[in-house]
Design a binder for these strands. Structure first.
Length: 935
RNA sequence: GCCCCUGUGGCGGAAUUGGUAGACGCGCCUGACUCAAAAUCAGGUGUAGAAAUACGUGCUGGUUCGAGUCCGGCCAGGGGCACCA
C-alpha cells in the first residue's frame, strides 16, 4: 500500500469522449444524475413482467459505509441489473436498521440525541451509497426508527399476542448494577459489563417472549426445502434448533428422604437403553427440588450459590470440573422399587434443557463418568461393543458411547441399543405409578408460573402428532411412567430490552386490570423525544408524563411498558414492508406481499446465519398466522458473502497504523514497510478482517475519489469467489483501474471501426469476422451462466478473456482494408462487451455505450441474445490419451461417429508409436470430450 | 470435546461436476516506445532438465481406461456449537 495511488490521476476534463483517459470523476455523477432524473430504478408494483426481488441485508447507520458494504451491495446490484436486462421487474430497495445501542452510546458519550445522530448518519451513508451507482429504488427507503414503520410492528405485536404467539414470563438476564441495564451475552466480557466494568449479576426479570418454539419442528422441516440456501447455514440452523428424541421418565422419590411436598421427579433422556447402568440422579442447581432441599440444608444452599457464581465469572477455570452435592434424597428406579439412586445437585446440569434433571449412566456418558469418579459411585457397563468380551469389559476413565449389545441389563441383555430403547419405552409407557400421596410434583412446581391475566389460553401445538407437546398438561393420575418426547434446544425469543432507542412495546400495566394492550386506535406508541442520558438506566423508565398514563379499560392509574423491542424484531419483516412501504393503514398490503415474496436472492454476511435468518423465518410464519402474509419462507435464495480482509501494520511500540499512512516496498520476502510521514519502520502483520481496532481499513470514499466507483466495484468482484474472503490490495485495485481504462480505449477503437460497418447484417461472414462473433457469443454464454450462479470472479475472468480477444482482433486489422462483414462483427462484439460488463461497471458502460453511438441508456437495454449456432464448431479437437496420459490431439468433424474417431486416432503417429504395431486393448471414446487408448 | 468446511504455481484463484490441471488476474522476467520514468504494447513465467521427457492439485492407500473431483485413513488451517442428558 502506498497511500495515494501511484498511477497518474485521470485528468479532470469536462468529458472523456475524445479517446482520452476515462474520467470517472466526471462520468459517474453525470450518469447517476441521469438515472435518477429518468427514474429508471423505481419499480412499479403494477408492472406486468415477471418479478425478481433481490435484497441485500440493510445496514445499521453507523455513520460511514465500509468495504464490506461495498462488496455486499455490488453483488446485489449486479444481480439486479442483470435480471432487469433479462426482462424482469426487479425490486431492489434499501433501508436502515436504525434502532440500536450505538445511538444511545453516542448520546451518553457525545451528548447527541439518538434521533439526530441516527438521521445524520443515514444522510451521510445514503450519499456514500449513491456514489456507488447502485440501481436502488430509493422511493421505497425505510428507516426502522420511523414511527410510520414501527407503528405497524406494534400492530403485529398485538396481533401476535391475540394469536397466542407472545407470552410474558420470568427469565434470567445479565444485569449491570452500575449502568442499571440488561446486557446481551456478547456485552459481558469475562463476567463484567463491557462499559462499566462492574461484575455482572444474574437477575430474574419478567420479559416478553415470541413463541418461536411453537414452530421448532416446522422451522426444521422447511430447511430441507430451502435448496437455494448454503448447506452450511441450513446445518447451523438445524443444530441450533437441536431436535432430540427421547423419553420423559417419572422417577418416584423415596418419601422418607424427600423434602416437603416433592414426590416424584421428571427426567428427560435420549439413552433410556442405559437405564440399568444408572448410578445416580442429578438435578440442576436452580431446579425446584434443589431449592426445596436447600431450604433445610445450609451447606447445600451454599453449594448452589457457588454453582451460580461459576456460571458467570470463573467459567473458564471451573468449567472442566464436575461438582455435585448429595442431597440425601433417594430416587426409585422405574424397573425396580428396591433400587434406590442418590439424588445429587450437579453443576453441569442445565435447568433450561429438558426437565433440568438427569439420571447418570457413567459407563456411557463422559460427564457422568467424570462425576462418579469424583464421588466414588462406580460405573457398570450396559452396552458392550462388538467383539468385546462382556465378562472383561470395564469402564474406568473413558465412557463408551458407541454401538453394541446390551449387557448387565436383565431383560434387555443381548438386544441392540435401538431394540433396548424400544423395549424400555414400550414397558414404561404402559406402567402407571400409584397416585401421589401428597402435594405437587417437582415437575409441576418447576413450570414457570404465568399469572398475567393477559395470557391467552394455551393453543394446541401444531405438532402434536410428533409428540412435541410438553406432557405437563396431562394429569398426575393418568400419566404413565414414561412418555416418548421430542425435545428442542431452541428456546423462545426474548424481545424485551430495557433501553430507549427501540420500538416501544404497546402495553399498559394497570393496577386493577393488569396487563392491557394499547388500543389499536392509539398506535403508534411513539418514543418521547425529551429524554436525557445523564443518569444510568432507561430514560423511558423515569419519564413522568410518558410513563404514567390512564388504563385504556378502567381509566385508572396505569404505567406504560418501558421496555422496547429487540432490534432483531425490526429486521424480521423489513423485506415485507419494502413491497409496499407507502401503505399507512396496515403493515403490508397482502396482495403486494404475496406477489413479491419470497425474496428471490438475499445477500448478506454469514454472521446472520442463525439469529436474523431464523427470526425472520419465524416472523413470516407468525405474519401468516395473523393474516398479514400468505407465505411461510421469506428468502427463497440466500447467499452469504465473505469478508474484506487487509494486511495489518504496526509501529515498534505496537500501535496499529492505517494502510493509507504506510508505504510498502519490495516484493515477496523482501517487502518492507515504513511510515510515509516520518520514514519510521513499520512491521507488516497478518491479513485480517478489516476492523477499526486493527486500523487495517480502507475508506470507500477514498477509493471512489481516487479511482471511481466502477473500479472499486470491479475489484470487489474479481479474483476471490464471492463466498470467500477477499484480500484488499493496492495492486489489485490498480489492476482493476487499468482495466477500466483498457475497456474505454477498446470501446473508442471499436467505435471508430464500427463507423464503416453496414447498417444491415451481412449475409455471410468471412473467417476473421466469424472468429470475432464466436468470441463474443461464447463470452455472452459464459458470463450469463456465471452471473446466474453468482460466480462473479469467473464472470470477471471471461470478460477479461473476451476483451483480450477483441483487442487482438483489432490489432490484426490493417486499417486500409476493412471488410464490411468484419466491421459489422466488431461493432456487434463491442455492443455485447459493453452490455456484459454493465452490471459490474455501470458508469463506464454508459460512457462506452454512448461512445459506440447509442442514444439509449445501457441500464435499460435488454441482455444480448445468444446465437446458439455460433457456439457450435464444425470440427472439434479432442485430446488423445494413451493409458490415461495426454499424448496427442485429434481434430474430427463435430458429428463424427465413434468408429470414425477411433480410426482417426489409431492413425496418429504418437498412437502408432505407442502401440508398436500391436492392437490396442481398448479404445474409449467419450463424445465431445476425450479419447483414451489403452495399450 | 462434538459437528461442518477448506487445502491446486511466488499470490488470489479456474477446471463444463469423473475426461487436456493451472483459465483469468496480480506479481515477476525479457523486449518495443522514451533522454528517462510512468502509462501502453509484444513475448515469457508450475518444478527439474540444454532437450526429449519426467514429476506435479496437503500426506497416504483404494475404485476407475482415466481422479483436483469418488471412497478409506491421516495431517494442517478456518468456522460453528458446546456440560443439550
Amino acid at each position: 500500500m502506498s497511500g495515494p495511488p501511484a498511477l497518474k490521476q485521470p485528468e479532470m476534463t469536462a468529458d472523456s469522449s475524445k479517446n482520452e483517459r476515462y474520467n470517472a470523476h466526471d462520468a459517474e455523477p453525470r450518469w447517476q444524475k441521469l438515472w435518477d432524473e429518468r427514474g429508471i430504478f423505481a419499480t412499479k408494483n403494477d408492472d406486468p413482467r415477471p418479478k425478481y426481488y433481490v435484497l441485500e441485508m440493510f445496514p445499521y447507520p453507523s455513520g460511514r459505509i465500509h468495504m464490506g458494504h461495498v462488496r455486499n451491495y455490488t453483488m446485489g446490484d449486479v444481480v439486479a441489473r442483470f435480471k432487469r436486462a433479462m426482462g424482469h421487474k426487479v425490486l431492489h430497495p434499501m433501508g436502515w436498521d436504525a434502532f440500536g445501542m450505538p445511538a444511545e452510546n453516542a448520546a451518553i458519550d457525545r451528548k447527541v440525541h439518538p434521533k439526530k445522530w441516527t438521521y445524520d448518519n443515514i444522510a451521510a451513508m445514503k450519499k456514500q451509497l449513491q456514489s456507488m451507482g447502485l440501481s436502488l429504488d430509493w422511493s421505497r427507503e425505510i428507516a426502522t426508527c420511523d414511527p410510520a414503520y414501527y407503528k405497524h410492528q406494534q400492530k403485529m405485536f398485538l396481533d401476535f399476542l391475540k394469536a397466542g404467539l407472545v407470552e410474558r414470563k420470568q427469565s434470567k438476564v445479565n444485569w449491570d448494577p452500575v449502568d442499571h441495564t440488561v446486557l446481551a451475552n456478547e456485552q459481558v466480557i469475562e463476567g463484567r459489563g463491557w462499559r462499566s466494568g462492574a461484575a455482572v449479576e444474574q437477575r430474574e426479570l419478567t420479559q416478553w417472549f415470541f413463541k418461536i418454539s411453537n414452530y421448532s419442528q416446522d422451522l426444521l422441516n422447511a430447511l430441507d426445502k430451502l435448496d437455494r440456501w448454503p448447506e452450511k447455514v441450513r446445518l447451523m440452523q438445524r443444530n441450533w434448533i437441536g431436535r432430540s428424541e427421547g423419553l420423559l421418565l417419572r422417577f418416584a422419590l423415596d418419601a422418607k428422604t424427600s423434602p416437603g411436598s416433592e414426590s416424584e421427579l421428571d427426567i428427560f433422556t435420549t439413552r433410556h437403553d442405559t437405564l440399568f447402568g444408572a448410578k445416580f440422579v442429578g438435578v440442576a442447581p436452580d431446579h425446584p427440588l434443589a431449592t426445596a432441599a436447600a431450604a433445610k440444608n445450609p451447606k447445600l444452599a451454599a453449594f448452589i450459590a457457588e454453582c451460580k457464581k461459576i456460571g458467570t465469572a470463573q467459567e473458564a477455570i471451573e468449567k472442566a470440573e464436575k461438582l455435585g452435592f448429595d442431597t440425601g434424597i433417594k430416587a426409585i428406579h422405574p424397573f425396580d422399587p428396591a433400587w434406590k439412586l442418590p439424588v445429587y445437585v450437579a453443576n453441569f446440569i442445565l435447568m433450561d434443557y429438558g426437565t433440568g434433571a438427569i439420571f447418570g449412566c457413567p459407563a456411557h456418558d463422559q460427564r457422568d463418568l467424570d462425576f462418579v469418579n469424583k464421588y466414588g459411585l462406580g460405573a457398570t457397563p450396559v452396552v458392550c461393543p462388538e467383539g468385546q468380551d462382556p465378562a472383561t469389559f470395564v469402564i474406568t476413565t473413558t465412557a463408551y458411547d458407541g454401538d453394541g449389545r446390551m449387557i448387565n441389563s436383565r431383560f434387555l441383555d443381548g438386544m441392540t441399543i435401538e431394540q433396548a430403547k424400544e423395549e424400555v419405552a414400550k414397558r414404561l409407557e404402559t406402567t402407571f405409578l400409584p397416585p401421589p400421596e401428597r402435594g405437587r410434583s417437582a415437575s409441576e412446581a418447576s413450570r414457570v408460573g404465568v399469572s398475567d391475566s393477559m395470557r391467552p389460553p394455551p393453543r394446541p401445538s401444531p405438532f402434536q402428532g410428533e409428540g412435541a407437546e410438553r406432557p405437563a398438561q396431562a394429569t398426575k393420575e393418568n400419566r404413565p411412567v414414561a412418555q416418548r418426547q421430542v425435545n428442542y434446544r431452541l428456546r423462545d425469543w426474548g424481545i424485551s430490552r430495557q433501553r430507549y432507542w427501540g420500538c416501544p412495546i404497546p402495553i399498559v400495566h394497570c393496577e386493577k386490570c393488569g396487563v392491557m394492550p394499547v388500543p389499536e386506535k392509539d398506535l403508534p406508541v411513539t418514543l418521547p423525544e425529551d429524554v436525557t442520558f445523564d443518569k444510568p438506566g432507561n430514560p423511558l423508565d423515569r419519564h413522568p408524563t410518558w410513563k404514567n398514563v390512564k388504563c385504556p379499560r378502567c381509566d385508572g392509574p396505569a404505567r406504560r411498558e418501558t421496555d422496547t423491542m429487540d432490534t432483531f424484531v425490526d429486521s424480521s419483516w423489513y423485506f415485507a414492508r419494502f413491497t409496499d412501504p407507502w401503505i399507512a393503514t396496515a403493515p403490508t398490503d397482502r396482495k403486494m406481499i404475496d406477489a413479491w415474496l419470497p425474496v428471490d436472492q438475499y445477500i448478506g454476511g454469514i454472521e446472520h446465519a442463525i439469529l436474523h435468518l431464523l427470526y425472520s423465518r419465524f416472523f413470516t410464519r407468525a405474519m401468516k398466522a395473523t393474516g398479514h402474509a400468505g407465505i411461510d419462507e421469506p428468502f427463497a435464495g440466500l447467499f452469504t458473502q465473505g469478508m474484506v480482509v487487509h494486511e495489518t501494520y504496526r509501529k515498534a511500540d505496537g500501535e496499529w497504523v492505517v494502510p493509507a499512512e504506510v508505504k510498502v516496498e519490495g516484493t515477496e520476502d523482501n517487502r518492507r514497510a515504513s511510515l510515509i510521514a516520518t520514514g519510521e519502520k513499520i512491521e507488516i502483520g497478518g491479513i485480517e478482517k478489516m476492523s477499526k481496532s486493527r486500523k487495517n481499513t480502507v475508506d470507500p470514499d477514498d477509493i471512489i475519489a481516487s479511482y471511481g466507483a466502477d473500479t472499486a466495484r470491479w475489484f470487489m468482484l474479481s479474483d476471490s469467489p464471492p463466498d470467500r474472503d477477499v484480500n484488499w490490495t493496492e495492486q489489485g485495485v490498480q489492476g482493476a483501474w487499468r482495466f477500466t481504462q483498457r475497456l474505454w480505449r477498446l470501446a473508442g477503437e471499436a467505435a471508430e471501426i464500427g463507423k464503416s460497418a453496414p447498417v444491415t447484417r451481412p449475409a455471410a461472414f468471412g473467417e476473421p469476422a466469424l472468429a470475432v462473433r464466436k468470441a463474443a457469443h461464447g463470452a455472452l454464454a459464459k458470463v450469463s451462466d456465471a452471473i446466474e450462479k453468482l460466480h462473479f470472479n469467473v464472470c470477471v475472468a471471461h470478460i477479461y478473456e473476451f476483451a483480450n480477444a477483441l483487442g487482438d482482433a483489432i490489432g490484426d486489422i490493417e486499417s486500409e482494408k476493412l471488410p464490411p462483414d468484419l466491421a459489422w462483427a466488431m461493432r456487434e462484439a463491442a455492443d455485447i462487451l459493453v452490455r456484459l460488463f454493465h452490471p459490474m461497471m455501470p458508469h463506464l458502460a454508459e460512457e462506452c455505450w454512448a461512445a459506440l453511438g447509442h442514444t439509449t441508456l445501457v441500464a435499460t437495454e435488454a441482455w444480448p441474445q445468444i446465437e446458439p449456432e455460433l457456439l457450435i464448431e464444425s470440427t472439434i479437437t479432442l485430446p488423445v490419451q494413451i493409458n490415461g496420459k495426454k499424448r496427442a490431439d485429434v481434430t474430427v468433424a463435430r458429428d463424427a461417429g465413434k468408429a470414425d474417431i477411433e480410426t482417426a486416432v489409431l492413425a496418429l503417429d504418437a498412437v502408432k508409436q505407442a502401440l508398436g504395431g500391436k492392437r490396442p486393448k481398448k479404445v474409449i471414446v467419450v463424445p465431445q470430450r476425450i479419447v483414451n487408448v489403452v495399450a
